[in-house]
Amino acid sequence: MGEAIVITSGKGGVGKTTTSANLGTALAILGKRVCLVDTDIGLRNLDVVMGLENRIIYDLVDVVEGRCKMHQALVKDKRFDDLLYLMPAAQTSDKTAVAPEQIKNMVQELKQEFDYVIIDCPAGIEQGYKNAVSGADKAIVVTTPEISAVRDADRIIGLLEQEENIEPPRLVVNRIRNHLMKNGDTMDIDEIVQHLSIDLLGIVADDDEVIKASNHGEPIAMDPKNRASIAYRNIARRILGESVPLQVLEEQNKGMMAKIKSFFGVRS
């Protein structure tokens, strides 16, 4: 039986959907059977990021309301043989169209067939969040280095820790801009982890290629050379139990003065 992982954050726009898509893709690349579940009812996006929007016939609401069988709603990603599937969200309904218990039962059923069920959680802490969390065994909290995102992540962690069936959540810090971090304009990794007091699962540098890839419906994790792709693949490997160090963030080239300063032990 597989395990269900909910990808959540509290704040919108931090990269939950991107993380879900790329994590699912990375796990599939590593040979695992993965089902991506979009629980953002009314505002579905995961299908677009995966490039599967034109192949949706049924959706999650159809499944829970019994209008179709589960395998009819699942959209197979042909790029990964029989390894990656998507359960799309409904675009017409709203978040109250399904109850947490229904999602839980559906996820339970998916876990019989898949190694990993990745649940993309909507923003906020209302009904959509409760639905997404209901069927999960594990949780990944996504944040960016902005204080507002970290504060919302802190709130979500508090809620997740109250859930009895979910293991202690793990953290992914997304869209890191190294020069801002170096200059102290955003929180650095250690500050974020110390503030949130949860285990760090991975970090992903901010990269324009991620946006371009999402717009083309090809998750960046498919590109073996891209830095963000390597970061997502490393996160996937850590989920599988491997011990992988963090990727080194891009260093700016040192100027002559900086080199002289560092020779004499002066920290700039």
């Binding site: 990794i189 011990s243 992988v244 160090p245 963090l246 080194v248």
Partner: peptide, 28 residues
């Protein structure tokens, strides 16, 4: 090796007090 992405240390400082240090671990 348990977590190569992040390291948490429990240390007895020079003053005899226990303190905790943690840090992200990068490749290389």
């Amino acid at each position: 090796q348990h977590n190569r992405a992040y390291v948490k240390l429990e240390i007895i400082g020079l003053n005899g007090e226990i303190r905790f240090d943690q840090r992200a671990s990068y490749e290389g």
